[in-house]
Design a protein around this nucleic acid. Structure first.
Lengths: 357, 357
DNA sequence: TCCGCTTTAGAAAACGCTTTCCTAATACAA
DNA sequence: TTGTATTAGGAAAGCGTTTTCTAAAGCGGA
């Protein structure tokens, strides 16, 4: 399994950073607080207080301590410090796949906010070792003050049972009673996207469904409702995986529909891209034969040929908000709150049907 | 700054994973080894020995311990354990930008190998807080047993001074005397790629240069040598940043060349993609007016329009090899070794010049 | 000059785990 | 039986911090 995180150095040591490195070569062991204390002619407790600003000391004492720190290139032992304080000042982020740009953008956002707030982020790539996810999460939990779950396959109940005021959990793209969350209004997004295809004149619109969690449920529901409203038939296929490969394999599914669909809504960008590649090799033209649209914010959606229409999901913003929320909860425990964002329709070439344009 | 890592739970606890979660809700504090010992009627030392398999115990004692562990949902405190053993069983990976697929692929590879070897990976995104990179690396170092530097802006000297047998460093894409490394034969790759453009009939080939480190030096050298061999002029421009944005901005540079270049070699895929997008808006046709090629392994290179010719860099493999090497060094210190891989030319549409094809 | 209050800094006890002795108990051979 | 070899499991000393408690010193006011 893979952990990813945002890391922050201790602020008080920053100013002495330059030049540190050179000492390491000559040191057998890293300097301990005891060594600094000896060098400065004070006690370890005093050094700790000066470094953390916990208690003011005489000016010259502080100066001696800082000088010793600088001279020895002292870095506090992270683990000892955590053990002593009981706070790791680290947040855990669980994502489904580090190769999916949605999640990396989310991590980027989370990392930035965490960094500003003085936290480190540890990231776990759940895909790497499926089946042991609960295990992964518990271990991650043991190392952090709180968790952001952005792509977990755990059940609602499991997640709810892990959430506690001392070690809060924030979910992204998933609504569980009692658990704080940050979500996109996927239902409305899906209504809009499906509506867009209808407007483009599509009559036989298929939905390629992702993992059976909240996000997909909402997207599927919006799709169904929009089609019902338009008086059109619906057809849902389950993807083998919500990525490029899954998209490529999905083209086979489409042939089971007679006549061939004239519109496809994909669970995410990667699926759409994989699908379009596969359709191209099969000689099916996008958007002339079939329009393709997706949910996501792949940075290259506009660079493809045809460019990809999607409901733009603010991945990075989600990461930022989730982290902000988690930090709030850590500062003072409070009621679970739900933050909602909105997706934006980006109409592009993949749904620009000739008869309409 | 952002840390990313691969995480692994302690193997011996795996079998008891299912069902753990439910206990957390009712527990004020996490169970300690002392609680387990009391529950099992043994001493903490015994519990430790059973859990780690350090010393064999009577069968029924072991059974009682495991039962207590399971009942209390015990998870060893990670930090206490590290403090005690002195080994964190974590590796640090420093990358330049988590949004760059080259680095995420590398991390994926590193995470997998690390996981297999019982290590956790912590990843730092250096881009998030440039200027404090030395600081970041030192802090990362304080938490891990060894480091993989895949995108550092530190000087060779700084890196060399950080490397030690106790806390080894492996660089990726950078050759520093005395420091183990994993690299691609960038020089040959560049010779090949430039040669490909020459073969395609390009006469005025420009190179868009990345950060001034080993990789770029080698690519630039290969470019220069290939052109010298072909008796063609060379022209190098420095990118503002080695990503999409940098590529977009680079189109402005090309206009300073008269007549307009008919071939561009980009430091990486993202640059090429940004450049092509920018050229498209300017009405410059690729590959008719100018051929574009790059180094990289962007998963969508083949999906673009035109599809992108590049020397395929085995990013994931690099991550795997670097991690393997680092683990070796951790097992038993040895001479710094250098592992080399090769890039593969993937000719695609962006260099398929009409007069040749 | 003395008393009490504030500041400065040290001693020592956690934090939760591992690991090294070391003892007591058991098994085995003579 | 006795003596020796082996094994099971406990006691306690770290690992490097932080933090609380307390003593000493310095200071102003009476």
């Amino acid at each position: 399994m893979v952990l990813i995180g945002a890391f922050q150095a201790r602020h008080l040591l920053d100013r002495f950073a330059v030049g540190f490195g050179i000492y390491f070569t000559y040191m057998r062991k890293l300097a301990r607080i005891f060594d600094v204390a000896k060098e400065a002619g004070v006690s370890p407790g005093t050094v700790s207080k000066v470094l953390n600003g916990t208690q003011r000391m005489a000016a010259d004492t502080e100066a001696r301590v800082w000088k010793a720190v600088s001279k020895l290139g002292y870095q506090a032992n992270w683990h000892a410090r955590i053990l002593s304080t009981g706070r790791s000042e680290a947040l855990g982020v669980v994502i489904l796949d580090i190769l999916n740009p949605h999640f990396t953008a989310l991590v980027k956002g989370a990392g930035q906010v965490a960094s500003n707030q003085g936290y480190t982020v540890l990231l776990a790539d759940a895909e790497e070792d499926p089946g042991r996810e609960l295990n992964l999460i518990q271990s991650l939990r043991a190392r952090t003050d709180g968790l952001i779950l952005a792509g977990s396959r755990l059940s609602d109940q499991q997640i709810a049972s892990l959430h506690s005021p001392e070690q809060p959990i924030v979910t992204v793209g998933r609504r569980i009673p009692g658990v704080p969350s940050v979500t996109v209004d996927e239902y409305t997004a899906s209504l809009q996207l499906t509506g867009h295809l209808v407007t483009q004149g599509c009559k036989r619109i298929v939905y390629l469904a992702g993992p059976p969690f909240w996000v997909n449920q909402e997207r599927e529901r919006g799709y169904q409702d929009a089609l019902a409203l338009a008086g059109l038939p619906s057809q849902v296929f389950k993807l083998t995986s919500p990525d490029l490969l899954g998209g490529e394999q999905a083209s086979a599914l489409l042939w089971t529909v007679q006549p061939f669909p004239d519109g496809v809504i994909c669970y995410n960008d990667l699926v759409a891209i994989g699908l379009m590649a596969s359709l191209k090799t099969l000689g099916v033209k996008v958007p002339q034969d079939v329009a393709v649209a997706a949910f996501g914010n792949h940075p290259l959606a506009a660079h493809l040929s045809p460019s990809l229409t999607h409901m733009e999901i603010p991945s990075r913003k989600l990461g930022e908000l989730a982290t902000g929320l988690l930090v709030e909860l850590l500062k003072k425990p409070q009621e679970a709150s739900h933050v909602q964002q909105y997706a934006v329709l980006r109409p592009r070439g993949s749904t620009q049907r000739p008869e309409v344009a």
